[in-house]
Amino acid sequence: MTQRKGKSRFLPMPIHSLLLFVVWLLLNNTLAFGHIVLGAFLAITIPMLVTSLAPEQPSIKKPGLAFRYFMLVMWDILTANFEVARKVLSPMNKLSPGMVAVPLDIKSELGITLFASTISLTPGTVSAEISEDKQWLYVHALDIDDEQALIDEMKQRYEAPLKEILGC
């Protein structure tokens, strides 16, 4: 296995390692010492074995901001649901759905994936398709008043912090 420059030998994929460790403990629903040791062993060896398969590693530049972003998304999911529930139960002929194209500023694939997933989970929008050159994201919205306002809100509420977190 070849190691690239600038990568730690011991933890080539720190985020994956953490995720594996946490998921192992969650799956066993325990904090017993044996499971912590086994989880740590798995979290260190599995990334070492698979690191040559994944070319680029994402990095979080600002963990504090990432946490705030996570809380923001959780809160928006909660409010989104009340909004969607209200729209589902109100008369259907008031609804004005539509498709909008959002220009993308994020360039990294992880950033685009996170952005698309976020807008799928939050108020009345589902990401449908991305253009081949990764410049435009097609988003279907449940109820549009003003297309431009919707695009601007998505961009500054979700894309700007994501861009800052991933540093790209």
Binding site: N81, V84, P97, M99, V126, H140
Partner: peptide
């Protein structure tokens, strides 16, 4: 397309 909205959000919550 509008039907996509209800299960992804309401059911997840």
């Amino acid at each position: 397309y509008t039907r996509l909205h209800a299960p992804t959000k309401a059911t997840t919550l």
